[in-house]
């Protein structure tokens, strides 16, 4: 028992952000170049494993979902619907293991944004945050995108309200505007996705939108941490099932002093994590489970990372001081300087 307590004690003092950096580097190489090493992780990956990238070892579930929903109602309740349901269960199976840590530790687009943030920090340019009113409004966009990427494929095969089916040029609508499609192939020196498609008006609009969003991805990530994650439909989809995740982030509100450290270090800028003292399960829809909040919390056992119900990493005063007050560490002081 003492042995386990010792390990837990060490984990609570650990610098998870540093560990996360190395995991992100490894998973970026895996997700972007794994295919070149004959790695195949399936077609229901809950992160941006983009098949437009030649080196991708798998396929993002969003593209599988869009293809899978391109069905008539009768097909949806036939074996094709069963195939879609099986794919969906596979996605859930992948997802529940890491929960939303897929975003914080594995997503290659998230990793790219984190690297752009580091670059901005090195250059000495300040970052931006949304105020709470804007935050509440903008966070709904990802749900709108999620609804559209479900409705449009269904609308291509079916008629809604007596209207004609949607043009087939809208196939995989999210992929047409996803920055992952344009950016990840660049990592394999493939520029073939940077194009404007003049085939017809639909493709012209969608391909232009895709390039616009790609450009905004870079500028946005430079100005605001994890800019794109705020609008990501994968994040919205994952949140719908985050309650069943094995990996959990919990909060003991009675230990919270609302110092706001957790909110200040949060890359997405979730205010609820600081203000909510009633919910035990604290994963919000924008959370990417990077666990920076646990690192930055100075209160013992206020925030906990759990596997099922077992705590594997908890906020402690000792850990907080070790991580942030010791020299040569990424400190809150630096974070504040960053806001200048």
């Amino acid at each position: 028992m003492n042995y386990l307590q010792n390990i837990k004690h060490k984990a609570d003092r650990a610098n998870v952000s540093r560990l996360r950096f190395w995991i992100q580097l490894f998973t970026f190489l895996l997700i972007v170049y794994g295919g070149y090493f004959f790695i195949h992780i399936g077609s229901q990956v809950p992160t941006f494993a983009c098949p437009y990238n030649q080196g991708s070892p798998g396929t993002c579930y969003l593209i599988a979902m869009q293809h899978g929903l391109h069905l008539t109602w009768s097909e949806l309740v036939s074996y094709r619907g069963l195939a879609f349901f099986t794919g969906f269960l596979t996605f859930i199976g992948f997802f529940i293991v890491f929960n939303k840590a897929w975003c914080g530790f594995i997503c290659p687009l998230g990793t790219l944004q984190d690297w752009i943030t580091k670059l901005r920090y090195k250059i000495g340019i300040r970052f931006s945050r949304y105020d709470s009113a804007s935050f509440q409004k903008l966070k709904k966009i990802k749900y709108v995108i999620l609804v559209l990427l479900i409705a449009i494929p269904l609308g291509m095969s079916n008629s809604f309200f007596g209207l004609a089916p949607i043009n087939h040029d809208m196939q995989s609508p999210f992929c047409q505007v996803c920055p992952g499609r344009t950016i990840l192939p660049l990592a394999s020196a493939d520029t073939s996705q940077i194009f404007i498609d003049f085939t017809n008006k639909t493709t012209l609009v969608m391909s232009t939108l895709g390039i616009l969003i790609t450009a905004l991805f870079f500028v946005g990530a430079f100005a605001k941490k994890r800019f794109f994650c705020f609008f990501c439909p994968m994040s919205a989809l994952q949140f719908l099932f985050s309650r069943i995740g094995i990996l959990r982030l919990t909060k003991n509100g009675s230990n919270c002093t609302r110092c706001g450290n957790c909110n200040r270090v949060c890359d997405v800028g979730i205010i609820g994590i600081a203000e909510d003292i009633t919910s035990k399960y604290i994963v919000k829809d924008d959370c990417m489970m990077c666990f920076k909040c646990v690192e930055a919390c100075p209160e013992d056992n206020c925030l906990d990372v759990r596997v099922f119900n077992a705590k594997i990493f908890s906020s402690t005063q000792e850990g907080f001081f070790k991580r942030y007050i010791q020299p040569n560490e990424l400190s809150l002081k630096n974070e504040k300087n960053d806001e200048r």
Binding site: T191, I194, F195, I196, D197, F198, T199, S207, T208, I211, L212, T214, A215, L216, F218, V219, G220
Partner: peptide, 19 residues
């Protein structure tokens, strides 16, 4: 029917304008 040049033009104009 696909233009790489126009893709780059739209990209850089957006980057400059949004910056």
């Amino acid at each position: 029917y696909m233009s790489f040049v126009w893709g780059l033009i739209v990209f850089f104009i957006t980057v400059i304008a949004s910056s």
